[in-house]
Amino acid sequence: MASPTCSVLGVRALNRATLARQLLLGRATMPAGGAVAHLLGLQAQNVKPPYYQLHARLAGFRPEELGRLMEERQVVRMVTMRSTIHAHTVQDARTLRPLVQGARDREVGYFRKGLAGVDPGALAGRARGFVEEEPRTMGEIREELLRQWPGADPQALAVAARCLLPLVQVTPRGVWGRGGQVRLTTLERWTGEGEGETEGEGMDGLVLRYLAAFGPASVKDMQTWAGLTRLRGVFEGLRPRLVTFRDENGVELFDLPDAPRPDPGTPAPPRFLPAFDNLLLSHADRARVVPPEFKGRNTSGNQSRCVLMTDGFLGGVWAAAGGAVTVELFRETAAAVKEEIVAEGEAMLAALGDGPGKVRFGSVRG
């Protein structure tokens, strides 16, 4: 049985613990598939962000490694947490999607006016048969469903299909250096129904894995990450196996007894992260990585900007264009730190750009 604690973890202690779990205090020497599993998936609304996420976290990462996993159908891109597209190992896709399916079913309910007279089971069945014949675009799926329900709202039909079925984006979409229209089929058809399936770990297992990747964390933190509610009972059931802390606001935080909690003074190197990196999206209170004075500065309208982490916290934004990276810093920064930022940016360009490139400091639009 774990021994409970009443220690208070300050912002820097939480920051360093989270960075350690996120492989951002030092690049890890693990394969790309292992990192995708450890991180419980990578935000993947667009093609390139998963590659930038792994470059920031893994020693010697090459984009071809993740691309090969996608082509070999060991990693898939599909809607899971927060109704957003993530890149998951096949095992996690099969485990996670059922756990968040209730939230996806509720999402369909938001479009019920546009789905008047549409039976969800019939819709799911027709869409499944259509995409399992061959991968289809979302436009093709809408047209097929409109043939059966011509009076329904086309967007509502598309959302319902996306939510009711575990649809994956098939390759070459998502593969580094290759283009491709978004085409969808079911997880089962793409990966082989039942092959390599992970034994159901349930919500208990998901909580433990979330803490391993994002802890220490509160119940609300995990609910924010997963897009789920009513997880208090799961945490309470696991309490004997966990340790607890408080943050500076008195919020209870849960953690794995043996998880890393580095000294708050541990150095944190600069890291370039893409838009929508889960580091910045997976806690109800983001102060552990976003200083209050910079809240909202990594977004422009409803778009997220690529972020630069300095000393473990949001310190600026960046954009790449024409073989160069422009960095906008949010505060005065020592010359030595700027040198580290330039070296990190040049390494990123060498690994993920078109070759050696320049890093400059200035304003980033948008």
Rank of each mutant, 00 (worst) to 15 (best):
A334N: 03
V11W: 10
R230M: 08
L308I: 11
A226Q: 00
Y52R: 14
L165G: 08
P50Y: 03
P172F: 08
Q148P: 01
V317S: 13
N302S: 09
P269I: 01
R286W: 03
M138F: 15
G357P: 07
R106C: 00
E332S: 13
A217F: 12
R126P: 01
A160Q: 07
A226K: 02
V234K: 11
A127L: 09
L228S: 05
P98L: 05
P291K: 08
R104W: 07
D221C: 07
I341F: 07
V289K: 11
F130Y: 14
L165Y: 05
W318D: 04
H88P: 09
G345V: 12
A59K: 06
R230V: 02
L96S: 04
R232N: 06
N278H: 09
G26F: 04
L19D: 09
A56P: 05
G355T: 09
G323M: 00
V75H: 07
A93R: 08
D204Y: 10
R16Q: 04
A213N: 07
S3D: 13
H283D: 10
T229S: 12
V243S: 13
H55V: 02
A93K: 10
V182R: 12
L167P: 02
R57T: 04
C163F: 07
L24T: 08
P356R: 14
R209D: 10
G196Y: 06
K220Y: 00
F276N: 14
A334E: 15
L231T: 01
R128N: 05
V234P: 02
L349R: 12
R12I: 00
P50R: 02
R12E: 13
T266D: 01
W190N: 10
M78V: 12
E340T: 02
A20H: 06
K338G: 09
L253M: 07
A17D: 11
P270G: 02
A124H: 08
R178Y: 01
T326A: 04
T186R: 04
R178V: 01
Q155A: 04
A87P: 08
E332F: 06
V359H: 10
L279M: 10
G323K: 08
N46L: 10
G151K: 00
S300D: 14
G202Q: 09
